[in-house]
């Protein structure tokens, strides 16, 4: 029997995802997405991956979604009029459920369902990926093993910054 808290949060996350896809109001959709992201963060907490959970809330549910909402409100997108297409939505949802069930039956490795339903296996309880849980371990691997990709990501940010300035600044008159 899985953890009841897990079941509750999973149901909440799935419901939020349905809201995100089904709602015709973009702001409601964005709110659904925030809820879904927070739900996933809560699952990370249940897995003892506190650091990942905090990052998820800070980066995705916080910064990225604020950007989404900002743009939605800036563009002032109106929900379309007319009756809600219930039949199409239900048919689409059913088809997606069938497809994902088929894909899961095909792709899921042998016995993974039983594993997921049972208690946490000891090798996971020992938590081999220590950098998923603690900021210190994460920082250590970031500044030792992954020093080079970290530097490259810095260049990526610089490049994106210069690119945004280039694309957004007022045009210079050609002479």
């Amino acid at each position: 029997m899985p953890d009841p808290l897990f079941v509750f949060i999973a149901a909440l996350t799935l419901g939020a995802c349905c809201l995100l896809v089904a709602s015709r109001n973009p702001v409601t959709s964005a709110m659904g997405m925030i809820l879904a992201l927070v739900g996933i963060a809560a699952e990370f907490f249940l897995l003892d991956a506190y650091f990942l959970g905090v990052l998820q809330v800070l980066v995705y549910a916080g910064a990225v979604m604020v950007l989404f909402l900002f743009i939605i409100m800036l563009l002032d997108v109106q929900p379309p009029g007319g009756a809600y297409p219930w039949k199409r939505a239900l048919a689409g949802g059913a088809a997606f459920l069938l497809l994902s069930a088929a894909a899961f039956a095909l792709l899921a490795p042998e016995g993974s369902l039983a594993k997921a339903a049972g208690p946490t296996p000891p090798e996971l309880a020992a938590n081999p990926e220590s950098y998923a849980t603690a900021a210190k371990a994460f920082g250590r691997s970031l500044y030792t093993k992954y020093m080079l990709p970290l530097q490259m990501a810095g260049l990526l940010l610089l490049l994106a910054l210069v690119g945004v300035v280039t694309l957004a600044k007022a045009p210079k008159s050609a002479d």
Binding site: Y146, L148, P149, M152, A153, L155, L156, L159, A160, V162, G163, T166, L167, P171
Partner: peptide, 24 residues
């Protein structure tokens, strides 16, 4: 995988900007 993806992504982001470089 990490270096592969970060390198490819950095190059691609730069190319997006260069595609739209003539803003007018």
């Amino acid at each position: 995988v990490v270096t592969f993806f970060v390198a490819l992504e950095t190059a691609t982001v730069g190319l997006y900007v260069l595609c739209g470089f003539l803003r007018r």
